Computed example of a mutant assay.
Amino acid sequence: MLASSQSAEVTVIIVSWNTRELTLKAIETLLENAGNVRMQVVVWDNASIDASAEAVAQRFPEIELIAHDENIGFAAANNRVAKVAKTEWLLLLNPDTETHPKAIENLLQFGKANPQAGIVGGRTVFPDGTLNPASCRKKPSPWSLICSAFGFSRLFPNSSFWNPEAIGGWNRDSVREVDIVVGCFFLLKRELWERLGGFDSKYFMYGEEADMCLRAAKLGYSPMITPEAQIMHLLGASTKLRSEKQISLMRARASLIEDHWPAALVPIGRVLMWFWIANRRLASGIQSSFLGKSEAAVEWEKIWNARKDWMKGY
C-alpha cells in the first residue's frame, strides 16, 4: 500500500522513457499486487515525447511524478530520486514490467532475511508466462566472451558451461547467489546504495547495475535471487532497434571490462568483443547472400560499423 515518506519502508523508483501504456500498466499492477508492504512510489520521466508524464499524472495523482525536461539516462535518474529518498529500502522497477501477487512483499522479506546478499532480485517471465532469464547473470569473463564470440552460447543455451553469463540451464526456480541482479527488479538498502555512491552515471543505459553489483561484491556482499518474488518483464521496450540496444550493451560491456578486469586482460576482452560482432556480421552476410538481405543482417551491419564507438565504452 502507498504510504508517506515518513512511514514507508521502501521507495519504488520507476524511470520511464517513451513507454506510456507500459508504464501505466506497471504502476497499476504494482499498486494492485505489491502485497503487505508500505511503499512510496516515484516515477521519473526522462523527457518522453509520448505524453507519458501527463498520462501518469492524470491516472495516478496519488504517486510522486518527476517530469524531467531532458533524458539524463537510467543511472542518473535513479541517482536523483535515491538521493532524496528517506526509506530504509530502495526498489528499482522497470516501466515494462507487471508485478505479480505479493512480489514486492516477498522480495522485501527476502532482502531482510539475507542481509549478506546486499542486493536481491526475483524471477522474471515473459507475457506468456515462460521464463525470461534476464533477471540475473554472471559477470563477463574471458571464457564467457569466448563462448559468445564463437557462438557456443547460442549453440548450447541451456549449458552453464557453454553459456556461463546467462547461467544456462537454471530456470530461476531456486534461491541462488548470482554475480549480477538486473536493474529491472533490484532491491537494496538505502544505506548500501549511499555507501556505494549510487550508480556510476557514466553508464547512461545498461551496465550500471552490473557495475554496482560487482562493487558490492568487493565489499563482501553476495547478490541473490529468489523465485518467490516474480514479475513480468518485456525486456528493452524503450529501445526499438536491435542495433541501438546492442550498441549500448556492447559499450556497457566494454566499460565493465575496463573497470573490473585486471589491466592485463582488458585488451583480450576488447579483441574478443571485436570477434563476437565480426562473426555475427559475417554469419548474417553469408545468410543474406543466399536468402537476400534480412532485417537482422542490416542491424548487425550497423553494429559492426559502430565498433570504433562501442569499443571505447562509456
Rank of each mutant, 00 (worst) to 15 (best):
S5T: 01
A8M: 06
V10F: 02
V12I: 15
V12D: 05
I13H: 12
V15S: 04
N18Q: 04
E21Y: 14
L30N: 07
V43M: 12
W44G: 05
S48E: 11
D50S: 08
V56T: 04
K86A: 09
W89D: 05
L91N: 01
H100C: 14
Q109W: 06
F126V: 04
P127M: 05
G129I: 10
T130Y: 15
L131E: 13
A134V: 11
A134G: 12
P142W: 06
S144P: 04
F150I: 02
S153W: 13
L155Y: 09
L155C: 11
P157W: 12
N158I: 03
S159Y: 11
W162V: 06
A166H: 12
A166E: 14
V181F: 07
C184S: 00
F186K: 05
R190G: 02
W193K: 06
G198S: 09
D200M: 01
K202P: 00
Y206H: 08
A217H: 08
A217Y: 03
A217T: 03
E228W: 15
Q230H: 10
H233C: 09
L234D: 08
L234Y: 13
L235N: 07
A237W: 02
Q246S: 00
Q246P: 06
L249W: 15
A254V: 01
H260F: 09
V266I: 07
L272V: 10
W274S: 14
G292Q: 02
A296Y: 03
A296V: 01
A297F: 07
V298R: 01
Y314M: 06
